[in-house]
Design a protein around this nucleic acid. Structure first.
Length: 580
RNA sequence: GCGCCUGUAGUUUAACGGAUAGAACACAGCCCUGCGGAGGCUGGGAUCGAGGUUCAAUUCCUCGCAGGCGCACCA
C-alpha cells in the first residue's frame, strides 16, 4: 500500500503509464530523472517527447495532454509543470516527503523462497608466488563490494570465489630456480618476496643460459604428468603464498571467501573437459594442437591442448566452469571480476558454453558475465610488470596510506590515547584506499598515482567517515528522538526537502549499482548526501532550536541520513568508526 | 594487419540521447564567541577533429587523430 513512499520514481512511473494508456497503444520506455536544479521539480520525465511522434503533435501539446490526465489520477503532487519544450516536471507535496521520510527505510520484503538462485562472484584471483599488487585491488575491492551488494539487496545466495593462479609454465621456471638456488628457511620466513626473487633470478640467468627455459618446460611437463616431488613443491609454494594473501585480505577488512580453489585443482576435470569436447565434435586438430573453432561466433580459434599434450589457461577455465555447474546448486549467474585485457578469453569461454548448450550437453547454463575493468598502469603509463619488478606491492601501498592517516590523526587528535589513534589511522587509511578505487567507473584505464590515494579530503572515505561521526555526535547529544513519535512539523524548507529526496533514493541507487555492476554510483551518491548534510547542519543549528517539533523533525532527518551513510559504507566495505 | 576499449577544466573524473556538462584535487579569496575546521561559502577554468542522424548529441553512425589492450601452444 505504502510502497510508493519508498520509491517516488515507481509511483510516477505507474502514474504516467496509467495516464498515457488511453493516448497510445504501446507506451515507449521513458525516463524519470531526479533533478538537481530546483526549478525543474523533484523529478522530471521526457515522456512527451517520446509520445509526440505517435500523436502527431508537438511535444508541448502532448505534454499538456498528459498533464491533464495525470492530474485526474494523482493525489500526491503539488503541481506538474511543463518546461524546456515538453519536459514534465513533477513537484510532490511536502506532506508526501514527510511521510516518506518517516517510512524510510522500510521496504517490501521479497517473499522468502527456499530456492534462492546462486550467484558466484569470482574476484581477486592472485597468482601464487607473486606479490599482490595494485592491479589486484580493482578486482578484489570491486568483487567484495558486489558480493556485499547482492547480499544486502537479498534474493541471492552469494558465493565468493577466489580462483587462484597456481598453474602454468611459470611454475616450471620457479621449480628450476628453487632446485638450483632456493633456500627453504628463507622462503618460510618471507615466502612471496623470496619466491619472487627466485623468479626474477631465473629470468636474468635465462638470458645467459638458454638451457634454463627448456628445463622449465620439462619441470612443468613433469608436474602435469603427476610428478610427486614437483607437486609437493607447488603445494608448498601455494600454502606459503596464501598465508600472505590472507594477511592482506584481513588488513583490508574483506569478507572471507567461500571457495578458494587453484587452477591446479582441475586435473581430473581437464581430462573430462577434453573428452567432452571431443565427443561433441568440437575439437579440431591444428598444427599438432587441439582447438575449438569459433568462426561462427566471429572469434579466433580457442586453443585447448598444446601440441605437447598439456593444457592451457582456457582449458582449466572451462573445467572450472563445468565443475561449478555440476557442484553448485541453483547456479544461475557467475560474475567474473577480471581485467578487460581478458575480454577475448571470456568471449571464447562464452562461445564454448554456447556450443555445449546447443549440443544439449548443458541444459540450463548459468549466465556468465565478465565484469571487466580497465587495467591499472603505472605513472609512466606502462604496464605494471612483475617480471621486471615494476610493481607497487599491495602491502607497501597499504602501509603508506595508513602512515599518511597516522600523521594526520597524530596532529589533529593528540588528546586521544595511542591505541585509539591507531584504530582511526587504520580505518581512515584503508577506507581512503578502498574508496579511491571504488569511486571510479570501471571502464577507464587507471593510471596509478600513489599520491592520489593518499588524499584524505574531498570526495574520499574520510570525508564520509567524518560526516557520519559528526551526525552521530549530534544524535548522542539529543534526547528528543524516539521511534514512536510522529513528525507533525510541515514547514519543510528546500534544504530539508533535498535531503529527504536524497535519502529516499538510497535503494534505487543500490539497484542501479547492481544492474551496472559498478560501485561509483554508490560512492557518488554517498558523497552528494554527505555534502548536503554538511551544508545543512553548517547552516542550521539543530540542538539549539526552540521549536520542538521542528527540532525533532531535523533530528529525524539526521538520523536517517546517518543510517544511509553507515549502510552505504558497510556495503563499500569501509569501516564506519565511532571517533575520528 | 585484424578485433576490442578509451579520449571531458592544469590533474583525476561524473552525466539510460535530454533542459544551464556535475564534482574532487590544485589555484585565488572569505568564514573559528558555532551541534567536532578531516568542515562551510565564493571564483576562474573542459566535451580530440571533421561530417552525419535527431525536436535534442559528451553520448548514436562514418571518417580521421591520439592512447591502451588483445589476437595459437603464457596466465
Amino acid at each position: 500500500m505504502t510502497s510508493y513512499l519508498s520509491s517516488p520514481v515507481d509511483y510516477l512511473r505507474k502514474l504516467i503509464e496509467k495516464s498515457t494508456s488511453k493516448l497510445v497503444k504501446k507506451i515507449p520506455s521513458f525516463e524519470i530523472e531526479s533533478k538537481k536544479i530546483e526549478q525543474f521539480g523533484d523529478y522530471s520525465s521526457n515522456i512527451a517527447f517520446l509520445l509526440a511522434p505517435f500523436l502527431k503533435q508537438s511535444p508541448l501539446k502532448t505534454a499538456q495532454k498528459i498533464k491533464e490526465e495525470i492530474l485526474k489520477n494523482d493525489s500526491w503532487l503539488e503541481k506538474v509543470e511543463i518546461a524546456g519544450g515538453g519536459f514534465l516536471n513533477f513537484f510532490f507535496k511536502k506532506e508526501f516527503w514527510i511521510k516518506a521520510l518517516n517510512f524510510f527505510p522500510k521496504i517490501k520484503k521479497a517473499p522468502k523462497s527456499k530456492k534462492k538462485p546462486t550467484v558466484i562472484i569470482e574476484y581477486s584471483s592472485p597468482n601464487i608466488a607473486k606479490p599482490m599488487h595494485v592491479g589486484h585491488f580493482r578486482s578484489t575491492l570491486l568483487g567484495d563490494f558486489l558480493a556485499n551488494l547482492y547480499q544486502y539487496l537479498g534474493g541471492w545466495k552469494v558465493l565468493r570465489w577466489n580462483h587462484l593462479g597456481d598453474w602454468g609454465t611459470q611454475f616450471g621456471k620457479l621449480i628450476v630456480a628453487y632446485k638450483k638456488w632456493g633456500d627453504k628457511k628463507k622462503i618460510e620466513k618471507n615466502p612471496i618476496s623470496e619466491l619472487l626473487a627466485l623468479y626474477v633470478k631465473f629470468h636474468q640467468e635465462a638470458k645467459k643460459n638458454k638451457n634454463l627455459e627448456e628445463a622449465a618446460r620439462n619441470e612443468f611437463k613433469k608436474l602435469e604428468e603427476g610428478d610427486k616431488e614437483n607437486r609437493k613443491l607447488l603445494d608448498w609454494f601455494a600454502r606459503e603464498s596464501l598465508k600472505e594473501f590472507h594477511q592482506i585480505y584481513k588488513t583490508l577488512g574483506l569478507k572471507e571467501f567461500d571457495v578458494e580453489k587453484g587452477e591446479s585443482q582441475y586435473e581430473k576435470e581437464n581430462i573430462q573437459t577434453i573428452k567432452l569436447l571431443k565427443k561433441n565434435n568440437l575439437l579440431v586438430e591444428s598444427q599438432g594442437a587441439l582447438i575449438v573453432d569459433l568462426k561462427e561466433e566471429n572469434l579466433p580459434p580457442a586453443l585447448i591442448q598444446k601440441s605437447d599434450g598439456t593444457t592451457l589457461y582456457l582449458t582449466r577455465e572451462i573445467s572450472s566452469l563445468l565443475y561449478r555447474i555440476k557442484k553448485v546448486k541453483n547456479l544461475s549467474r557467475i560474475l567474473y571480476v577480471v581485467g578487460s585485457e581478458q575480454s577475448l578469453h571470456f568471449q571464447q569461454l562464452t562461445g564454448i558454453l554456447k556450443k555445449l548448450k546447443e549440443r544439449g550437453v548443458i541444459k540450463n547454463p548459468p549466465l556468465i558475465e565478465h565484469i571487466s575493468f580497465g587495467i591499472v598502469l603505472g605513472a609512466n603509463k606502462k604496464k605494471l610488470s612483475t617480471r621486471e619488478g615494476r610493481i607497487i606491492k599491495a602491502q607497501d601501498l597499504i602501509k603508506q596510506v595508513i602512515q599518511e592517516a597516522r600523521k594526520i590523526v597524530n596532529t589533529k587528535r593528540k588528546e586521544l590515547p595511542l591505541k585509539e589513534r591507531e584504530k582511526i589511522a587504520q580505518a581512515v587509511g584503508i577506507g581512503a584506499l578502498k574508496y579511491g578505487f571504488l569511486k571510479e567507473g570501471r571502464n577507464s584505464t587507471l593510471i596509478f598515482d600513489p599520491q592520489k590515494f593518499l588524499s584524505l579530503i574531498g570526495n574520499s572515505a574520510p570525508y564520509l567517515q567524518y560526516t557520519l561521526v559528526r551526525l552521530k555526535s549530534i544524535l548522542k547529544k539529543s534526547s528528543h528522538i524516539t521511534k514512536k513519535e510522529k513528525n507533525r512539523w510541515e514547514e519543510v524548507g528546500a534544504l530539508e526537502l533535498a535531503l529527504i529526496r536524497k535519502i529516499i533514493s538510497f535503494r534505487e541507487v543500490l539497484i542501479k549499482c547492481q544492474k551496472e555492476s559498478s560501485s561509483h554510483i554508490l560512492t557518488d551518491y554517498l558523497f552528494e548526501l554527505a555534502v548536503k548534510i554538511n551544508e545543512f547542519y553548517e547552516k542550521i543549528p539543530i540542538l539549539k532550536d526552540e521549536n520542538l517539533s521542528r527540532k525533532k523533525f531535523r533530528l529525524l532527518l539526521i538520523k536517517k541520513a546517518a543510517f544511509v551513510l553507515e549502510e552505504g559504507l558497510k556495503i563499500l566495505g569501509i569501516t564506519a568508526i565511532e571517533k575520528i
